[in-house]
């Protein structure tokens, strides 16, 4: 029986996977020293899975970099270690506390740790001589990201210039750099939040348990539900109570809110995401709420 064209069909999730694997291989072939920026969140876990597939049965040919803010969820660090150990990849940790102690950044008591991450990240990239850094950013997350290239050029200061972006055509990526510059690479640019969940469900891979519904002692701040933790002292009038919640993103514990949810399985999360009325960053990320261009401004400075 002859097969017709319709038989050679690739589902949209398979197409996204193929595109991402292509990007990982391209970077590994063309850059001297790539690194994968790993937060332990769902997007960076999907990135690690894609990298695993791109080079299998060889090991992932680059290390993983994590910025330890000192404000990470402990559950996320456990998941990180499980992944790193299973894949046998090298983990580089750049800590904000060390950076403060070494004078790389100054803790003036006003700058959030989220903001300090940028300086620590850029310092880690420079110190290790990384020429390409994979990030889990997606274009559906935020409108400044919607315009960012898959290969996003950074100058010697780690800055992004949205007006000077290189045109990106077909699947031909331009990785040319001058000394001291680096490239941010976004292999899951075209994935949506739902695609990420579909993929996690399909692959059956480990993610931090805080993404699933659990009981947690929380308080309300700026319309968000925040975790009770010594790392985030209560302000006047804030009341702690136990609620059934889950996290939609994994950021810094002092800025990342959770949502009330009973979704305790991947299908339940997919059902919840499908009907969500707020974007994941708008709903639970204090760091994106400062202004309409909060993300664009931080990205220009060299943020993830």
């Amino acid at each position: 029986m002859t097969q017709t064209h319709a038989d050679y069909r690739l589902s949209q999730l398979d197409q996204l996977e193929a595109e991402s694997i292509h990007i990982f291989r391209e970077v590994a072939a063309e850059f001297e020293k790539p690194v994968l920026m790993f937060s332990g969140g769902k997007d960076s876990i999907v990135m690690l899975r894609l990298a695993e597939k791109a080079f299998y049965p060889a090991k992932i040919p680059f290390p993983v970099l994590q910025i330890d803010t000192g404000l990470d969820f402990p559950e996320v660090l456990v998941t990180r270690d499980n992944w790193v150990n299973r894949l046998g990849v090298k983990l580089v940790v750049a800590s904000i506390d060390d950076a403060i102690a070494n004078g790389v950044v100054v803790d003036d008591g006003k700058t959030s740790r989220n903001r300090m991450q940028t300086a620590v990240l850029l310092n880690a990239i420079e110190e290790n001589g990384f020429t390409a850094a994979f990030g889990g950013g997606r274009r559906d997350e935020e409108k400044a990201r919607a315009k960012e290239r898959v290969y996003s050029h950074r100058d010697e200061f780690g800055q992004w210039d949205p007006k000077m972006q290189r045109p990106e055509l077909w699947s031909l990526y331009n990785g040319r750099l001058h000394a001291g510059e680096h490239m941010r690479i976004f292999p899951i640019s075209n994935w949506t939040e739902l695609d990420v969940w579909d993929y996690i469900g399909r692959e059956g891979i480990e993610i931090p348990p805080i993404y699933f519904s659990h009981q947690r002692r929380v308080f309300e701040r700026d319309g968000m539900l925040m975790s009770e933790t010594p790392l985030n002292p209560l302000r006047q009038g804030e009341v702690v109570e136990e609620r059934t919640v889950r996290f939609r993103t994994c950021g810094d514990i002092s800025l990342t809110g959770c949502v009330e949810s009973t979704a305790s399985t991947i299908p339940e999360i997919i059902a919840e995401v499908s009907i969500a009325k707020l974007t994941e960053r708008g709903a639970t990320r204090g760091d994106d709420r400062f202004s309409e261009a909060a993300m664009e401004d931080r990205k220009k400075e060299g943020y993830f």
């Binding site: 589902s11 999730l13 992944w83 059956g204 299908p267 059902a271």
Partner: peptide, 20 residues
Amino acid sequence: MPAPTEATVTESLTANMDML
């Protein structure tokens, strides 16, 4: 391999769709 998050592997309706 880490323990799968769920015993059954699942996807939403969008996973198997075509893309344009």
